[in-house]
Simulated assay, not measured.
Amino acid sequence: MSAGSSFGLLFRVTTFGESHGSALGVVVDGVPAGMPLSERDVYKELLLRRPGHRWATARREPDKPEILSGVFEGRTTGHPIAIVVWNRDVDSRPYEEVRCKPRPGHADLAYVLKYGWENWDYRGGGRASGRETVGRVAAGAVAKKLLLAAGLTVYGRLAEIGGLELVDPRAEPSVEEFLAARHSPVRVHDRRLEQEVMRVIEEARAEGDSLGGVVEVVAFGVPPGLGDPVFDKLKADLAKALMSIPGAVGFEVGLGFRLARMKGSEARDPIRLVNGQPRPVGPAHGGMLGGLSVGTPIRLRIAFKPTSSIPRPIETWNLCENRPDTISVKGRHDPALVVRAVAVAEAMVAITLADHMLRNAMIPPNRLGEEHVERINADWERLYPWPAWAGEE
């Protein structure tokens, strides 16, 4: 039996659906009653990972969500919230070749070895496709609204692409920078770099190639004390959440791997009084010590590999004829999946933090008070605005 499609303890999400199936979606359990929630709220976040624009796959999916349960008259009921997104632009024809030829760099071969060739949904990667993340981002919208009840916000941006560094990991991040990235179609906080990012993506596409990159996620307003020693550390749960995203190949907290190249005298953040409370001040440990939150912004980085689906031929094994073969991957694919991965990384951090806030009773588990509802209503549109590049609401 497999339980691999669910994540979280109290705020628990279960995604379902395949890339070329009828629909995808998510069931979110553990949301207290009384939280305002609409399909527009979910759609606003889904726009950030939606395909069909110039710097993503050409697959044109509207990704309009339908809330099937758990919401009545605009508020959550305290029961499971089911959200579905229907697939509208499916073309499985390019994948007939993939049925016999697993694509190098993809999950194809691993799925065949685990489940059997006769049980493998080869269309668009099936359950291993990046399209599975629709359900994660929908759940992330719910988590972001819930976290606002306690004053927490979660934002992401593109930190690196194709070796082009866009963010200084030592510079203190600000909400304003992340709001700027939300309004950028390539999720860059600095408009002076936006055209350069677009240029390198277009060059890779023209060459029949793809680019990898790094996403940075920062959570603001996180209280101290989230996480539980020793195996349920907050950083451990964040690592699992983020490394479960398709294409993720690396995870860092704070300065991450840079710390491994430093001396101990260089790798410590001093502890000082901040607003009357002792806090570590600096970028080294990303808002966590001993795997627990310490009341400063949590800062994470996730590395994503280049898209493996490119037209350049590569050696593979023909499973139907049991012989060596080559494959040139056709179809509609992202030249740089890292751009749309920003929204997914945000969602997984929000989901993890919502779970830990409920586990530590920092958000009421059964129903929200009117003071929480007022705070959410006051901050939702301001702190998570409609992305400017997406056009009219």
Rank of each mutant, 00 (worst) to 15 (best):
D29A: 09
P32T: 04
L37M: 08
K44I: 10
E45G: 04
E45W: 04
L46V: 10
R50Y: 01
P51Y: 07
G52P: 08
W55I: 07
A56E: 02
T57H: 01
A58Q: 14
R59S: 03
E61W: 05
E61L: 02
P62D: 07
P65H: 06
L68K: 05
S69K: 05
G70F: 01
F72T: 12
E73P: 01
E73A: 12
G74N: 10
R75N: 07
R75C: 06
G78Q: 06
G78L: 03
I81G: 00
I81Q: 00
I81V: 13
I83P: 00
V85W: 00
V85N: 00
W86P: 08
W86S: 12
N87F: 03
V90A: 09
S92D: 13
P94K: 10
P94Q: 11
Y95M: 09
E97I: 15
V98S: 01
V98A: 03
R99S: 10
R103G: 06
R103I: 13
D108C: 13
L109S: 07
A110H: 15
V112P: 02
K114H: 13
Y115Q: 08
Y115K: 11
G116S: 10
W117P: 03
W117E: 15
E118P: 11
E118Q: 15
W120N: 06
D121M: 11
D121R: 11
G124C: 08
G124H: 04
G125F: 01
G125P: 00
G125N: 02
E132P: 01
V134N: 01
R136E: 06
A139W: 00
V142N: 00
V142H: 00
L148W: 02
L148P: 00
A150N: 09
